[in-house]
Amino acid sequence: MKLSPLILELINAFKVLPGVGPKSAQRMAFHLLERNRSGALQLSQVLHNAMEHVGHCKQCRTFTESELCEICAHPTRSDAGTLCVVESPQDVVAIEQTAEFKGLYFVLMGHLSPIDGIGPSEIGLDDLANMLDNKDLTEVILATNPTVEGEATAHYIGQMCSARDIQATRLAHGMPVGGELEYVDGNTLTHAFVGRRSLS
């Protein structure tokens, strides 16, 4: 059966979603047409709105439709004097869920990776330098991923902090909670050994 141009266009449009190929796209298109037109209309409006209005927070670079995101605009969070540097907005969500951290964030939207052509200016380190200069910070927590690129990024920002006499700390690497030592990979185990702590 030959599909009408509009349906074909809809199927093709669904293929922009991650992990969606032609078959899944077709299934989605027909599902919405057959069973959930009101939901689909709402989706189209929300999608349009979000794509039009969501930008980056002026201070921490995370996604938001306001000028400042909720965390940056919060009346007390900047009083803590701590800043947590993460690679992506998802990392902010993960850390927020722990309810452990009460300071501000800075979202790099990536990491230093010279081989991919990503240098200091591509991950907004100029904005970060401004923030380090203008906010009254006592500690910067470097929560970049435990990869080689994440380490390089952390070291680079660490140097920016030491040039301004701000303490920089790095998240510990170690054993997963509830895991078994036998099944932990060698590199993680090495880090856990190097970063061991005395009891008490």
Partner: peptide, 17 residues
């Protein structure tokens, strides 16, 4: 013609270090 990005990492002089 594409420059090497790693060299950017060494230009940290403007951060005071």
């Amino acid at each position: 013609s594409k420059p090497l990005m790693s060299r950017e990492l060494f230009k940290q002089t403007h951060f005071g270090s």
